[in-house]
Simulated assay, not measured.
Amino acid sequence: MTSYTETSERQQLREQVFKLGSTFGGEYMRACTAEGRKTTELWDAVAQAGYLGVAVDEQWGGGGGDIGDLAAVMEELSAAGCPLLLMVVSPAICGTVIQQFGTAEQKDRWMPGFADGSLTMVFAITEPDAGSNSHNLATNVRHDEETGEWVLNGGKYYISGVDEASHVLVVARHRQPDGTLGLPSAFIVPTDAPGFTKQVIPMDIAMPEKQFTLFLDDVRVPADALVGDATAGLAQLFAGLNPERIMGAASALGMARYALDKATEYARTRQVWSTPIGAHQGIAHPLAHCAIQVELARLMMQKAAALYVAGEKGAGEVANMAKYAAAEASIAAVDQAVQTHGGNGLASEYGLGSLVVASRLARIAPVSREMILNYVAQHTLKLPRSY
């Protein structure tokens, strides 16, 4: 029977990661955002401690753990106020896909970099005209029979952290001789490849990482840039998307905990009349409700990680539910934290205002609330498909 209870080793991992994250904290992230700096010092510190590679096999220098361990790292950094978005796309998605489906040579080349943090690889699947419909991707690839190279053309949208990455794992559909597009595959593309260009997307969200539109114009990559079987289609790609949902849930849960910590500390010490405001049920009960939501979502995330590691069939369903629950818990916790602070909730000094937009993002990415509800309606409740 699959156990959803965390081991003492993972609990110790959580403690150590939170301790490290607290030496940076929310002030560090806000400073990086305001000054346009990258979170290089934090990334390097987390990497040096071995936390970025906890889910990489030991033969490549990793910790030999699993996605549950990596999610714990993500949650604790977020709870300390300094989440690392690129952990989701680099070790969780790209690392998982290459570790599961890459050739022996690809694993030997790329996995040590995921393990020690020296490699940052981002993931590019989203397109302007495809949205959540991965079957409608237009980015295409053809095989040059003379050179043996793959040639990619197309564009990607809302791709995180491309300016911090050396490579992008690009999803493209194979162009058939008749011009139609066949199954998709993943290709490792250097960010400095000729024909590869990027354009930043201006965002109202305050965070160090940036989002980009990508353009691929006859981008050539060698034969060994293909990861996995060219005929496998979306099955291989989805191997990285369930970890993405688990990591997204972990990030949202950490943010919720961070906001609740701020709110409860304020409620314990802030006095308007003769008692701390936290003694009043109008303040205490909403915060208690948020705490319950966080714990319920956390249990679902732990279940999703355990099922994924065990290879059980329901892992995708639970990962979607975990991401949904964590996003809702995060939005509620941040909102209530702001409300608890009153006007101070939007003062820069308290560091909560920027979380209002950041928490809202969890309801949209990496998969929208509506698509998760579609999935649950169809697969859990066996209702007719609506799209």
Rank of each mutant, 00 (worst) to 15 (best):
A80Q: 06
T126H: 08
F123T: 04
G131P: 00
G102L: 09
L84F: 07
F101V: 06
G102W: 11
V88H: 08
A79G: 00
Q99S: 06
Q100I: 09
S134T: 08
L84Q: 03
W110K: 06
G117N: 00
R109F: 14
T96N: 08
L119G: 04
F114R: 13
I125T: 02
I93V: 09
G81L: 14
A115N: 06
R109Q: 15
R109E: 15
H135N: 14
P91C: 05
E127V: 07
P128V: 09
G117L: 01
P83W: 10
T120Q: 11
L137Q: 10
T96Q: 09
G95C: 12
L84M: 04
E105I: 07
G95R: 13
V97A: 05
G113K: 12
V88G: 01
V89H: 15
W110R: 03
F101L: 07
L84A: 02
R109A: 12
M111N: 08
E105K: 11
V122D: 10
S118H: 04
S90R: 11
H135A: 14
C94E: 13
M121D: 01
M87Y: 11
S78D: 04
M111S: 04
A104C: 13
A104H: 14
P112L: 09
T126P: 02
T96I: 02
L85A: 12
T103Y: 06
I93N: 00
